[in-house]
Amino acid sequence: MHNSSRRGFMGKAFGAVAGVGAVGSLVAMKKTWDPLPSVKAAGFTTLDMSIYKENQLVTEKWRGKPIFVLKKTAAMVASQTDEQKERDIVVDGSHFMLAIGLCTHLGCIPAYKGEAEGFLCACHGGKFDWAGVVTQVPPPRGFDIPPFKIDGNKVILGEVGPEYKQMKETGITL
């Protein structure tokens, strides 16, 4: 009896030490898998918005991800529905579709097939129009819009400006 309670105590004492060690090592392991500070820091890209041509898709790069920039034609701007207008980004009087060029389904890059057909994702058949609104599932929502700040005729990706903040708050982008 005396013995067994002593063993019981030793068992519990070891359990406590091992428990602390186990939790500690799990924390270390989790943190080791986190993105490195250098990866997180390298996150800003500046775009000069005056160089783009109307209805020509250009793919820029931000945090390793493709960024779609499409300057809208006057006809496009005139025909915008409310849903399309919400996503419109106006820089220096020109209207743009600016978005992360990854399908919101599982992340393939959709191809731009021109004004009528919009974007087609070859992976599982998703479609988006030229304003970035989803028109065919499986993608659950339109293109995500990266954090941006308008500065004259430039746009800084990675910084949060008032236009982006509003889009985020109203749920237009995630």
């Binding site: 898998w33 993105p35 390793g64």
Partner: peptide, 11 residues
């Protein structure tokens, strides 16, 4: 977290 980056890269 799984990738260790925003996209698949060195990590």
């Amino acid at each position: 977290w799984i990738r260790g980056d925003y996209v698949p890269a060195q990590a």
